[in-house]
Amino acid sequence: MGKTVLIVDDSNTMRKIVSRALRQAGIDFDEILEAGDGQEALAVLGANKVDVVLSDINMPNMSGLEFLKAKAEDPAIKDIPVVMISTETGADIINEAKSYGAKGSVKKPFTPDLINETLGPLL
């Protein structure tokens, strides 16, 4: 059975690029959902059954880290795995994301193979 993934990024372009990489990664996704920031992402998770989330870190309204914190406090969605997408590779911010429950990170620009290696074990 196909999976559902949620892409969270304030850039419409990045959402399209991530979406294309997901399709090329060879993972069987039934549905690819999108949200423009953490707040929208929480609403999407509340209304849909999502298997995995790919989230940017720097976003307006609610950042990726704030999204992780809010998600961790909601028992209904706290166990959905989240992988962070970032330009910066600073260990500090990635470690902070992991401390809030992120299961991994991918650095831009990424290949479909990297997406597959990172998301595959979470599904």
Binding site: M14, T87, E88, T89, I93, K107, K108
Partner: peptide, 22 residues
């Protein structure tokens, strides 16, 4: 803008010491 952001991030990663933040 997304291309520039990604190029600049990778450029700094290539240039700086391991794990140095920018």
């Amino acid at each position: 803008q997304e291309l520039l952001n990604t190029i600049a991030g990778l450029f700094m990663t290539n240039l700086l010491a391991d794990n140095q933040t920018f």
